[in-house]
Write a protein that binds this DNA or RNA. Structure first.
Lengths: 213, 213
DNA sequence: GTCTATAATGAGATAGAC
DNA sequence: GTCTATCTCATTATAGAC
């Protein structure tokens, strides 16, 4: 009926586990899966190494848990935002993409270090085929919902083309987040106006390939 | 006057070094810098581990050499392609981006495994701030030349906006290369038509942010 | 659940024979 | 230049006391 867990974990246990996942999030984001060590994570969480294994299982399981925890919350927010946008009516491609991207960008700017770290974490997950299943599990369902709305606006468009637009858009967003220093070398810092620029880029590109013969 | 090297290396030595760099290229591309081991590289090159150190120096130096070798060739090709495009006259944003991307895509499709691996290698380098200097050295000069030509077409555009467009475009191209499986899940495989789609996406997005107020 | 100690493995790097 | 042997260190993972 239930899982293998014998009893409900204590409050202290949950707290410790959260500390470990928080630390893991930061270290994995900074150095990637291979570059991170469980010792660094234990050090950052101020717990003994053994506890990391106890709560996180193997290194790979710990990584997946770390991603899942934040991705699950992100997916909820994105789906709710989409519902609100649909309820408001008057959908456009630009608004849908803005909704998708702003949902995270707002958290990255106001949600503290962990949400900023999550952006780098997603970049690692998305770029390594090793995490293909994790990607499918954590990101594809929400991405599919947004894709469906976009396709409703362009009924004649090819779904494969839309999928390409989605992947290009997400990669541009990750570049906006994590390769900002390359852009900054020529201009000013990240601000609201730049998010508009990103959305403008993606919306225009997306539409171009949707209406193409 | 010259470097510290005492004598010119023998033909055999050069051959061994090339074998090591070839192997390093494949392994680094597959597993990233941290994930790759010098033992794997030595194994793939069918040489003893000691030789990897002798020819490649430290792991970090070996990685840089691996990237530089291919990037240097790529830069030459891209700059020559740009010159030919300029000589032909009638430049457009679409043509410039097509020139930049097709230069690599042609090699990836006809140049064998090593050029395909190079695409993944570039993705690793571009995403990790650890290689910021290497990025600046290997990619920025050529990127700057293309950026200059684009800005000539849009004299009123903001250079920072163009830089953003460039970064978004390159990241989309890397996604096209390395995350093709995500797109493929919904459509058909990589073909010539898809490169057109990528260029269309980037050109339309790029222009939108260049002409924006 | 928590923490210490340790096992078992694999890593990068080097010294020195050929 | 080439190759073998080895040093030193860090890693993941586990066993068992509290």
């Amino acid at each position: 009926m239930s899982t293998l867990r014998k009893r409900a974990p204590s409050a202290r246990s949950l707290e410790t586990k959260a500390k470990i996942l928080d630390a893991a999030e930061m270290v994995f984001a900074e150095r990637g899966f291979e570059g991170a060590s469980l010792r660094d994570i234990a050090g950052q969480a101020a717990v003994p190494v053994g506890l990391v294994h106890h709560h996180g299982g193997s290194k790979e399981e710990l990584f997946c848990q770390t991603v899942r925890r934040r991705a699950s919350e992100m997916a909820d927010i994105r789906q709710q935002s989409l519902e609100e946008l649909k309820a408001a009516g008057d959908l456009t491609l630009h608004k849908i993409l803005d909704c998708f991207m702003r949902a995270y960008m707002t958290l990255a700017e106001t949600g503290g270090d962990h949400w900023r770290a999550y952006g780098r974490l997603v970049a690692h997950v998305s770029s390594d085929p090793r995490w293909r299943e994790l990607t499918a599990e954590c990101f594809d369902p929400t991405a599919g919902l947004y894709l469906d709305e976009i396709l409703k606006l362009y009924p004649k468009a090819d779904r494969a083309a839309a999928a390409a637009g989605q992947v290009y858009s997400v990669s541009s967003m990750l570049a906006h987040l994590n390769s900002g220093w390359r852009i900054d070398a020529l201009g000013d810092g990240h601000n609201e106006r730049e998010l508009d620029r990103l959305v403008t880029f993606c919306a225009a590109g997306f539409e171009a390939i949707l209406i193409k013969v």
